[in-house]
Simulated assay, not measured.
Amino acid sequence: MSTISIIVPCYNEEESINLFHDTVEKVFTNMRENGMNHQPEYWFVNDGSSDNTLQILRDLQQKAPETVHFISFSRNFGKEAALSAGLHAATGELITVMDVDLQDPPELLPKMIKLIENDGYDCVGTIQHDRVGQGKIRAFLSSSFYRVINWVSQVRIEPNARDYRLMTRQMVDSVLALPEYNRFSKGIFAWVGYNTTYIKYESQPRAAGETHWSMAQLLEYSLEGIIDFSDVPLKLATWVGAISFLISIVGLIFVVLRALIVGGSVAGWASLVSIILLLGGIQLFSLGILGNYISKIYLETKHRPKYIIQEQK
């Protein structure tokens, strides 16, 4: 009997945990009835929840101590830290990452397992076929993010890919070998390579509760992904500065020639101020890009842990 480790990050998900566990258990029961002999190993990661999530995880672990485990952080460290903690704790031959809100259909697991065990894949990912229930602006920004990051990065990230995927132990070990503090899982999963295929599915509504990702958090997360996997923004700042410099030289030559030929110059404080503001804005824009990269270096050189575990069972 092979073990499948199921990593489930949780942040204020008291309404979803038991429902998620019951749903996944039904899937494994159906798998055993169909001759698929696999044992689940749950790793719930409590990411500093402020509701009753931790107590529910304790109760669930006591009911099924052989299969249910949990990790509880000392505070909220973010989903990337929760994924990293779960991957480190998992002991199964196959490892999957799932959202507790059941937007990642557990019913896909049998198909994903067969693709790895029978067809030789190292990873089976999932892609949302549509974005039902998601606002048009949010859907547009998400699609734009994948276009941008695949343009600026040497690593291709499948558009609309979810964190939900099933991986072999070898692939997970390769992911864990990457020591960086700033982590963007979708990019890391793509960077390590391996033979990967994807399954498309229609968007599922949350089983309970509401999303904890605001528009601002998603934008920040997207920028982190671009910075983590590309130096194109730095090159962009260089080219913008170079082009501005050349335009300034051409403008200076024009002003000098005009003064020598025509005599005097046309008064125009408004245009002068506009040029100064333009150049100042370009400089601040370039410094902002550089600052983001420096901040990443600063965080890496601190060598702080990605998370602190307060309780684990």
Rank of each mutant, 00 (worst) to 15 (best):
A208I: 05
I294N: 02
V175A: 12
I276G: 11
A139G: 09
A90T: 01
I199N: 05
S265T: 14
K111M: 08
I7K: 01
H69G: 01
E66T: 05
L115Q: 03
N46R: 00
E202T: 12
K313M: 05
S153Y: 05
N30S: 13
D130K: 03
F245Q: 10
S222W: 12
I226Y: 11
T168A: 01
Q310E: 15
P305K: 06
G281S: 10
L246G: 09
C123Y: 03
V8N: 08
V152G: 01
M167W: 06
E41W: 01
Y298Q: 08
E33C: 08
L279T: 04
V68R: 07
S74L: 13
Y181F: 13
D231R: 13
K306F: 00
L257S: 09
D47V: 06
K235C: 01
Y194F: 10
L252M: 14
Q62W: 11
D51W: 05
S74W: 03
R169V: 00
L108A: 04
K63G: 02
T67A: 15
I282A: 01
E33Q: 14
A85N: 07
V148K: 11
E66D: 14
T126H: 00
V266M: 13
S265R: 14
S230P: 12
R138H: 11
G92I: 06
I157N: 02
I4H: 04
K114V: 09
I226S: 05
F70G: 06
G241I: 00
M36C: 07
L178G: 08
L257C: 15
I7P: 02
G35I: 11
I297P: 02
G288E: 03
H212C: 08
W151Y: 12
V262M: 13
E300V: 02
E311F: 09
F285K: 03
V266N: 10
L178D: 15
S49V: 09
W213C: 14
K136H: 09
D51V: 06
T197L: 05
T53F: 02
R206L: 14
N150V: 06
D22E: 15
L176H: 04
V262F: 10
Y11K: 12
E220I: 04
Y221P: 01
S72D: 13
N46H: 04
V175Y: 12
